[in-house]
């Protein structure tokens, strides 16, 4: 792998080559990811602020996310654990597609890209399922302080599920941040699946075979790993802590 060899720093900046030893497209993908990471970083920082403001009222994730599809039992955090596993797994298949691309192995690229798309779509579907249960809430509901617009006071009311103004499980901010951050991440996964699908079709058509390199797979791979990376943090701050 000749691009990985370290170069003399004087020679590197003297022109005629990239001092970073990467192509323009990959460099720009990295810059885009840094800016996107700053957006997610900002969201998680503001989430951390609100959480520190309400340390006693903040709900525990294991009391909120207890459902598992087709199983009636109380299984806290099991489904989100499975979702995390699916996303990490699809990251692995993506990196295997990138590796196959470096050997110009079209068949293997198609196989691994296919599984990456399947994993991504499963993750988006699981997130929709989790949102559905969070919005719907439990059959019993919970007594919460709700702001009454008419009297301008907080009144006690039974709340079922969560939306942008009320939340069965805790402060309304918990629901707001959950919808905003997981929604923003879910949209990234969704667009990642679409981009992967486009590149997948290009691989089948043989666009990259004719080009002589599969760098496009590497670029969408960077984006896909980034989505996984963000989920690792969202998982920790929303579900584990």
């Amino acid at each position: 792998m000749s691009h990985s060899t370290e170069i003399d720093s004087k020679e590197a900046w003297s022109g005629g080559q990239s001092p970073f030893r990467v192509s323009y497209g990959k460099m720009m993908m990295w810059f885009f990811l840094i800016s996107d990471a700053l957006t997610f970083g900002g969201l998680l920082v503001s989430y951390g602020f609100i959480r520190h403001k309400w340390p006693e009222a903040w709900p525990k994730a294991e009391h909120v996310f207890t459902h598992f599809p087709f199983v009636e039992q109380h299984l806290p955090l099991a489904y989100v654990g499975l979702m995390t596993f699916i996303l990490i797994m699809s990251s692995v298949t993506m990196v295997l597609a990138v590796e196959a691309g470096h050997r110009n192995d079209k068949k293997k690229v198609i196989v691994w890209m296919f599984w990456t798309i399947v994993g991504g779509a499963t993750f988006v579907g699981s997130q929709a399922w989790e949102w559905y249960h969070f919005i719907h809430g439990t059959a019993e509901g919970a007594l919460r302080q709700v702001w009454d617009m008419e009297t301008g006071k907080y009144v006690e009311q039974i709340v079922y599920g969560a939306n942008m103004t009320v939340n069965e499980y805790g402060p309304a901010q918990f629901a707001n941040y959950f919808f905003f951050i997981t929604g923003f991440h879910g949209f990234h996964v969704f667009s990642g699946v679409i981009i992967n699908l486009i590149i997948f079709l290009n691989v089948i058509k043989g666009t990259y075979e004719r080009r002589g390199h599969y760098e496009m797979i590497e670029k969408v791979g960077l984006y896909w790993h980034f989505v996984d990376l963000v989920w690792v943090f969202v998982f920790t701050f929303f579900y584990l802590l």
Binding site: M1, H3, G16, Q17, H102, R103, H213, E218
Partner: peptide, 11 residues
């Protein structure tokens, strides 16, 4: 004559 980093990544 600019180096082709896309091709250098192949192994």
């Amino acid at each position: 004559d600019y180096p082709q980093y896309e091709l250098m990544a192949n192994h």
